[in-house]
């Protein structure tokens, strides 16, 4: 089995295009750094920053309000200048996940949340309905605790990716992928309930997820 690993340090996220030209895989053991690794048909993305916290104000922690765009077909980030194109499939900011369709982008995307395991989803069920983004009223991947992919524990101020939720994505180009969000915190580990609010805020909005992309246009994974 051929393994390709491309790693990026957090500092080089912005200069994504430049990194891609580097053919030699960079071995980066930092568990808190952004990285994409491919293992057979499963691609794992670690520490994808999603409008990370830059400060704490009167209304609480805030980011700069920008989405991070990702291409499931190309296994990598897409520059935000390409947001009006079909180059990206999913976009992340805070707990909001958009797909390239409807009010979010020009693509032919769509999505729904499947209850079950990632491995257990062998193909897109034939009776599936893909939803499209219709911000701010509705999103293909519903916003809110317990509605989409996550559970928010208010008193402990923690966001947990709900187990048993698979995001079934139709990409911008009409291909299919299944995505499982694994964690919302930097390093892929949810802070303990007794961690400080500062850790809970500044380590949040870093997605770890895995996916399988079916590039041949069929619905089988």
């Amino acid at each position: 089995m051929k393994k390709i690993a491309i790693f990026f340090s957090a500092a080089t996220i912005i200069s994504f295009a430049a990194c891609k030209k580097n053919d030699t895989p960079v071995v980066n053991a930092d568990p808190r750094a952004f990285g994409v690794s491919v293992n057979g048909s499963i691609v794992t993305v670690k520490n994808l920053p999603a409008d990370t916290i830059v400060g704490i104000g009167a209304m609480g922690p805030y980011g700069v309000g920008k989405y991070t765009f990702f291409s499931l077909g190309a296994n990598g980030l897409v520059a935000s200048t390409d947001s009006a194109s079909s180059n990206w499939d999913m976009a992340f900011a805070g707990t909001t996940v958009r797909v390239n369709c409807g009010t979010s982008g020009p693509g032919n995307g769509g999505a729904f949340v499947f209850n079950g395991t990632f491995e257990g989803l062998a193909s897109v069920p034939s009776d599936s309905t893909f939803k499209t983004d219709n911000a701010p009223a509705a999103y293909a991947i519903p916003k809110g605790s317990g509605k989409g992919w996550y559970t928010y524990d208010g008193p402990n101020n923690l966001v947990t990716a709900t187990p048993g939720k698979v995001l079934v994505i139709r990409t911008a180009n009409g291909k299919y992928a299944k995505v499982e969000i694994l964690n919302y915190y930097r390093g892929g580990v949810t802070p303990s309930t007794t961690a400080t609010d500062s850790i809970k805020s500044f380590d949040s909005r870093y997605y770890t997820f895995r996916y399988t992309y079916q590039g041949n246009g069929t619905t089988t994974f």
């Binding site: 079950g116 395991t117 990632f118 048993g164 939720k165 499982e180 694994l182 964690n183 770890t208 895995r210």
Partner: peptide, 14 residues
């Protein structure tokens, strides 16, 4: 069989 949890690597299972 409607409740899932996670393995130590973060992946879901029943």
């Amino acid at each position: 069989g409607k409740v899932y949890t996670r393995n130590s690597d973060g992946t879901s299972r029943l």
